[in-house]
């Protein structure tokens, strides 16, 4: 069982959700993390186009009203077990946008966040550190040490 999870955890596929960010975090994690200097693929990661293929989901942005339901729906489409990483300060607190009339964040009002990567925007190195942390949590979840989302909390889709 342990060996099995050890193998599984070497293939974290990433999916990126932009929940209304200023695109700084997205630039850093979607493109910069792929280039030779950082190369997220060396961790076995791959960005996938379909939420159904994903293991680790990276969320950026303060969660605007207009994307809220779409973000939650996409998040639910990602098969269990999954790990959620909030990238940037916006998903944590809303950042400078907090209090705006169309801001619905912080994101953990709706989605259980496993790893927070603060920064505005965070450097690619810290994003990759966040992915590594997420890998660790994923491993714990596979081994049954950490509970998954299903039994613990449900997303409240309004």
């Amino acid at each position: 069982m342990n060996l099995f999870s050890d193998i599984v955890v070497r293939s974290p596929w990433l999916y990126r959700i932009n929940a209304g960010s200023c695109n700084g975090c997205d630039v850093e994690l979607a493109t910069t993390a792929c280039i030779p200097r950082y190369d997220v693929e060396r961790l076995g990661c791959r960005y996938c186009g379909s939420p159904r293929h994903a293991d680790i989901v990276l969320i950026t942005g303060p969660l605007t009203l207009r994307v809220r339901d779409k973000v939650l729906r996409v998040w639910q489409e990602i098969p269990e077990p999954k790990v959620t990483v909030a990238v940037g300060i916006c998903p944590i607190s809303g950042g400078v946008f907090r209090g705006g009339h169309s801001i619905e964040g912080p994101i953990d009002r709706y989605i259980p966040v496993d790893v927070n990567v603060p920064g505005c925007p965070p450097r690619p190195q810290s994003i990759m550190e966040g992915v590594l942390l997420a890998k660790k949590i994923w491993l714990d979840r596979l081994n049954g040490i950490a509970p998954g989302h299903k039994e613990e909390r449900h997303v409240s889709l309004p």
């Binding site: 932009n18 209304g20 960010s21 200023c22 942005g61 303060p62 605007t64 207009r66 994307v67 779409k70 946008f97 705006g100 009339h101 169309s102 801001i103």
Partner: peptide, 8 residues
């Protein structure tokens, strides 16, 4: 449009 409208 309007997904990133943050009311800035």
């Amino acid at each position: 449009s309007g997904h990133v409208h943050r009311g800035m």
